[in-house]
């Protein structure tokens, strides 16, 4: 039973992920991305990683997609014109695909892939408390550093987008458009 559910959601994840770059309308693309994220969250639930599933829904399907949609609407993207890749890049893409599938195929058929048996579920891996404990002891420093990363990005966005001061000479304003 669980297997069937797994395959359903795995197929859903991959299909919707393929549809993201394929769809012409960017809003549709974003919607397919939500489907992909949500079904990934379902896969996490199947793996007993409930906390990760909740985060996936909250952060990715929630915040990030809303951001995407905002940007799409702000930029007011029209239906994208069909861009046909040149003959050369089509051939190159096909060649790359062949090499890649050959490599992956040989990796799995020759048995050189890593063994992947059924693992025992580690107790409490899905509980927020354990994540918090690690975050505030062992990974405290990376946690703090990422705070700086967010601060810098925030400052950068303000810098790049706030109104230009009047004292900037007018010759430079051509680049503002």
């Amino acid at each position: 039973m669980l297997d069937i559910i797994f395959y359903i959601f795995a197929a859903l994840t991959i299909l919707s992920a393929i549809l993201v770059p394929v769809s012409r309308n960017p809003v549709n693309g974003a919607m397919f991305m939500i489907v992909s994220f949500v079904s990934t969250a379902c896969l996490y639930v199947l793996l007993n990683a409930y906390f990760l599933a909740v985060l996936q829904i909250l952060v990715y399907a929630g915040a990030i997609i809303v951001l995407f949609l905002f940007i799409i609407m702000l930029l007011n993207v029209e239906q994208v014109k069909t861009l046909r890749p040149s003959f050369f890049s089509q051939i190159a893409g096909l060649l790359a695909l062949c090499i890649l599938s050959l490599g992956v195929g040989s990796l799995f058929l020759s048995g050189s892939a890593n063994p992947s048996p059924e693992l025992a579920v580690s107790a409490g891996s899905g509980i927020a408390r354990n994540f918090g404990y690690m975050l505030f002891t062992k990974y405290m420093l990376p946690f703090q550093v990422s705070g700086f990363m967010l601060l810098v990005s925030m400052i950068g966005v303000i810098l790049l987008s706030k109104k230009i001061n009047v004292e900037v000479p007018s010759r430079k304003e051509q680049g503002d458009a």
């Binding site: 550093v145 990422s146 700086f148 990363m149 810098v152 990005s153 400052i155 950068g156 810098l159 790049l160 230009i164 900037v168 430079k172 304003e173 051509q174 680049g175 503002d176």
Partner: peptide
């Protein structure tokens, strides 16, 4: 990532220049 993201911003710092 902290270094790289700050560098993206520094590279585009002179935002009056295309």
């Amino acid at each position: 990532e902290t270094v790289t993201i700050s560098l993206y911003l520094l590279v585009s710092y002179c935002r009056t220049s295309v």
